[in-house]
Every structure is written in C-alpha cells, then in structure tokens.
C-alpha cells in the first residue's frame, strides 16, 4: 500500500462511502473485512488531520492589482 496521503475531504468521502457499502449489507464477507480495515485506516487518518490542524492559513489578495498574494497553490 502506497504511503501517499490523500487529502482530508477525499478521505472523508471514501470513509462515508465505505460505511454506506457496509450498511447495505450485500458485500461479500472478504470484501467486508477489507472495507472495514480500510475504513479504520481512513478514520484514523481523518481524525489525525483534524486534531493536528492548528492555525488556519489565511491570506489577503491585493486590492488594487491582480497580485497572486501569498502563493498558496
């Protein structure tokens, strides 16, 4: 499994998707266990991201011209 981190919003969406699938109940047993593991991973990731976010990043665009401001891309 690649260690590449997925963004919070995607992780949340995947997690919700997994819960929905498991809820529907017509998942074969092996898949259910796999989904459960994935779900646990995702929820751990999401809660860590939430807890660890400290100061919010706020930037101001220039008024007069179309400056890029503080580059956040």
């Amino acid at each position: 499994m690649t260690k590449k981190e997925i963004p919070f919003d995607e992780a949340m969406l995947q997690l919700e998707n997994i819960v929905r699938q498991l809820e529907q109940g017509d998942v074969p047993l092996e898949n259910a266990i796999e989904l459960y593991q994935k779900g646990m991973e995702l929820s751990k990731l999401c809660s860590e991201k939430l807890q660890s976010a400290e100061k919010q990043l706020v930037s101001f665009m220039g008024e007069a011209t179309e400056e890029a401001g503080t580059a956040n891309e």
């Binding site: 819960v19 998942v27 047993l29 929820s43 999401c46 809660s47």
Partner: peptide, 24 residues
Amino acid sequence: SKENLMKNILSYQSACLHFVTQKL
C-alpha cells in the same frame, strides 16, 4: 464543524465494526 466531524468519524468507526461483526 470539527466536533461534528470527530463525532461522525467515531460513529463511522463503530458503524464499520458493527456492520462487519453483524456480517460475520
């Protein structure tokens, strides 16, 4: 909201556990 999300995440966790246990 952060609190709601944490609550949701926890409930998702227990939901996953519950459904898998149920499934088993």
